[in-house]
């Protein structure tokens, strides 16, 4: 799949933002006054910034409000509702932390649960795609939750939570790569089964239907990214998990540690998300004889 920068930024930033807002909502970060304002501002900026980035890949963003209409069937529509509901529910909690009136913490805990629900709706947009076997697996929602929670814990400055959740993220991401690598073969679709011609004999492309690339090939048959996938995985894993883990464990807790751990984590998350798209193969590639190219 084409790794569109807007979608990578959207999923990484809003995932991180909602993960962090979950920690703030649950009251696992204690701050008041302008310090609280700064913390909440960061969370809202990440979540909203990510959502705005998502609008940049739309062909007609001026109609984006229509995306709220189909929550009965569409995960993308549910995501729109979940994110707006989460940001609205958490607003009084943020104001309460900022101005020091005692809004019940249970409200914030509910907001934290909504944060995770929002991340779940995002993950289901990908996990529902039967056409992309690598994504169509329960590990995909688990991976998105792990990203949100580990990133949120880093920003929350909690040494224990960050260490545990980063380790968890490392395990889930490794599992997602391992499971994902076998998914296309596990689904079993081939050029022979896709065309129905495999019952006659061995099928190969004789001539492509068009001489230049089209929307399908640009969007769904992205093969450039797979070339350096293994190296990128190592780099992404090091930046995403190992570097922040070392920072969190070695340095005393504080804003500087948060920044030093969050910076490599964010870059690693972008790299890992790039791979999430670039490595994913769509079954339409079978018709073009273009899957499995490395």
């Amino acid at each position: 799949m084409h790794p569109a920068p807007s979608v990578i930024l959207f999923t990484v930033l809003s995932g991180l933002g909602f993960g962090y807002l979950a920690f703030l909502g649950a009251g696992l970060v204690s701050a008041s006054g302008w310090a609280a304002f700064a913390l909440w501002f960061l969370g809202y900026a990440l979540a909203v910034g990510g959502l705005l980035a998502s609008a940049f890949h739309l062909g007609n963003p001026q109609r984006a409000l229509r995306a709220f209409s189909q929550w009965r069937s569409s995960w993308l529509s549910r995501e729109a509702w979940a994110s707006v509901a989460t940001l609205a529910v958490l607003a009084p909690v943020a104001l309460s932390d900022w101005f020091g009136f005692a809004w019940p913490r249970a409200w914030g805990v509910a907001g934290a649960a909504l944060c995770l629900a929002t991340v779940f709706t995002t993950s289901m947009i990908y996990a529902q795609m039967k056409t992309v076997p690598r994504w169509n697996h329960w590990i995909t929602p688990l991976m998105f939750q792990s990203f949100a929670l580990a990133g949120g814990a880093i920003l929350a400055g909690s040494r224990l939570w960050a260490a545990v959740l980063l380790a968890g993220l490392g395990g889930v991401l490794a599992a997602q790569w391992r499971i994902g690598d076998g998914r296309f073969a596990a689904v079993g679709a081939t050029i022979g089964s896709a065309t129905g011609l495999g019952t006659i004999g061995a099928v190969q492309v004789f001539e492509q239907p068009h001489t230049g690339p089209n929307y399908l090939m640009r969007e769904m048959i992205h093969i450039v990214g797979r070339k350096h996938a293994q190296k990128l995985r190592v780099i992404a894993f090091g930046l995403l998990v190992m570097a922040p883990l070392a920072m969190v464990l070695a340095l005393p807790p504080g804003p500087l540690t948060v920044a030093l751990a969050a910076a490599p984590h964010l870059i690693g998350a972008l790299a890992a998300r790039w791979l999430f798209f670039a490595e994913a193969e769509h079954v339409v590639g079978l018709y073009y004889g273009q899957r499995g190219a490395t």
Partner: peptide, 12 residues
């Protein structure tokens, strides 16, 4: 149509 492209992804 907002041109999000999700339907094209969903079509095998």
């Amino acid at each position: 149509c907002i041109g999000c492209g999700l339907c094209a992804w969903a079509c095998p």
